[in-house]
Design a protein around this nucleic acid. Structure first.
Length: 213
DNA sequence: CAGCGGATATTCT
DNA sequence: GAATATCCGCTGA
């Protein structure tokens, strides 16, 4: 008998902790995206921690800019950025406020509303690929810049909410280097995923893109 | 399966 | 100008 996941919201205090504590604790939690056609619910299976102060890989490492200002705000809010000229990725801001740390949501399993996610992820060959990768995850959940700064712990109505779900025990959490991070930031094993989960994205070491002609 | 080119925002040099 | 917290479609083994 498998216990039903807890559908109550995570309190803001959950995020008001150091990012290295929050990140592994997010695995197995549920993210609910309210769309006009109904909810899309994702079970988190892969995340990465970014520390705004000591981490050269973080968008906030070199200080506050127009892009990263949400990271400097209250924990539990959503930081969305646009990358490679084409894709959005989403993060959840962690505490303490002002440290500008956040967790990148890299992959998950769509447990509700897969038919809605499929209409946005036409390239996915099967449901396990719907949210396998950070930009795929954002696309599947219809997340773009308009949701930057959304409070995922809001009391009232919100387009995006995070629930307790069924946290993964530490025995099932794996860690390794972050994907696509280069330089000194690459040494930290701050990528966390659920062991043997088919929705986790393949690891790709950072490779600089070749210069265009 | 591996490799590569294209899309082109944002930030840094 | 160059790098980046990426993905997709094509090519060739």
């Amino acid at each position: 008998m498998i216990a039903s996941p807890d559908r109550t919201p995570l309190p803001r205090e959950f995020f008001d902790r150091p990012v290295l504590e929050v990140a592994p604790d997010l695995l197995g939690r549920l993210l609910v995206r309210a769309t006009p056609d109904g909810p899309i619910t994702l079970r988190l299976t892969e995340v990465e921690a970014y520390d705004g102060q000591n981490d050269p890989g973080s968008h906030a490492y070199r200080g506050r800019t127009a892009r990263n200002e949400v990271m400097f705000g209250a924990p539990g809010h959503v930081y969305v950025y646009f990358t490679y000229g084409m894709w959005f990725c989403m993060n959840l801001v962690c505490g303490p406020q002002g440290r500008a740390s956040a967790v990148l949501l890299r992959a998950g399993e769509i447990v509700e509303g897969a038919e809605l996610a499929r209409t946005r992820r036409l390239a996915a060959r099967n449901d396990k690929e719907l949210a396998k990768g950070p930009a795929r995850l954002a696309t599947a959940l219809d997340v773009d810049r308009s949701l930057n700064g959304t409070d995922a712990c809001a009391k009232g109505a919100t387009p995006l909410r995070i629930l307790h779900g069924a946290p993964v025990g530490s025995a099932h959490v794996r860690t390794g280097p972050r994907t696509g991070v280069s330089g000194e930031g690459a040494v930290h094993p701050w990528r966390y995923w659920v062991a043997d989960d088919p929705t986790v994205s393949p690891y790709r070491a950072h490779v600089p893109r070749r210069r265009r002609s």
